[in-house]
Simulated assay, not measured.
Amino acid sequence: MDRITLKEQLEKYRTPYEEESAFIQDFIQLTEDPLAFNRERLAGHFTASSWIVNPDRTHTLLTLHKKLGRWLQLGGHADGNENLMEVALKEAEEESGLKNLRLVENSIFDLDKHIIPERPHVPEHFHYDVRFMIEADLTDKLVISNESVSLAWFTFDSVVDMIGYNPSILRMLEKTSKSEILL
């Protein structure tokens, strides 16, 4: 997947979720910016994430993010790499230590545009996060990266109780449950 393929997938991407469909056009427009895949674009830039689930679709792997202090899916900055699927897989491996990650589909699973708070030397900005569903085994050894405080598998039933209200996580959880019904 490169910039052109990403734009094509975004143009075809459909979602029943209003909050997600509201910013699809923003993602499409961002693909035209030469700096879109670089964190130096201070107005906002692409990031890529992995919604990691076990093959039975009963658990998801989340990380307690060190800088943000919240449980989130694994992911990170593109740092110039226009292949966001590759970025998502690389970040997932780096942040979890998992080696046997499997891409569920060769397409976008979810999109989220969210604000990142100001930090020293980094102004407040948007992340245009492109997410992919990845499978991993619950029994594989996890290794916590220096970007995380913790890393844990959560049952789908316990996600809300453990992480609180996070609309984008809840949306991915709901999408996963719906995709299982369709299988």
Rank of each mutant, 00 (worst) to 15 (best):
L89H: 01
F109L: 05
V104H: 13
H114E: 14
H127P: 01
S148Q: 02
I116L: 15
I115N: 13
S150D: 15
L111G: 02
E93R: 11
P120L: 10
K90L: 14
I108P: 12
N106K: 08
N146A: 15
K99M: 12
L98G: 09
D137V: 03
E105A: 14
S150F: 12
F126V: 01
E118S: 04
L138P: 02
L103P: 08
L111A: 01
E124Y: 07
E91L: 06
N83K: 00
V143T: 13
H127W: 01
E135A: 03
S150L: 10
H127T: 00
I144A: 08
L101Q: 07
F132M: 02
F132N: 02
I108L: 12
V122A: 07
D137C: 05
R102T: 11
S150H: 12
S150G: 12
I116Q: 15
D129N: 05
E93Y: 06
E93W: 08
E91N: 07
S150M: 11
F126P: 02
L98I: 12
E94L: 14
S107W: 12
N83H: 06
N83I: 06
K141S: 06
K113C: 14
K141Y: 06
R119K: 13
H121W: 08
E118R: 02
S148T: 00
V87C: 07
L84C: 04
L98T: 11
V143K: 09
M133R: 11
L101G: 07
E135L: 04
D110N: 09
V130S: 00
L138H: 02
E91C: 10
F109E: 09
L142T: 00
E93N: 11
F132L: 01
V149W: 06
H121G: 10
K99T: 12
E94W: 07
A88S: 12
S148L: 01
D110H: 10
F109W: 03
I144W: 05
E86S: 15
A88H: 12
M133E: 13
E93Q: 13
P117W: 09
F132Y: 06
D137G: 04
E91D: 08
K90I: 10
S150Q: 13
L138N: 03
M133A: 10
H127F: 01
N83P: 06
I134V: 13
K141A: 06
L98D: 11
K99Q: 15
A88Y: 14
V87W: 07
E91R: 09
K141H: 04
M133T: 05
N106A: 11
K113M: 14
E124V: 05
E124K: 03
A92Q: 03
K113N: 10
E94S: 15
V104M: 13
M133K: 11
F126H: 04
D112A: 15
I144P: 08
E118C: 02
A136S: 03
L101P: 13
R131W: 04
E124A: 04
E86I: 10
E91I: 07
V122L: 09
N100F: 04
V104E: 15
E93I: 09
E93G: 15
D129E: 04
L103S: 03
T139G: 05
K90D: 14
P120D: 08
E118G: 03
E135V: 01
L142E: 00
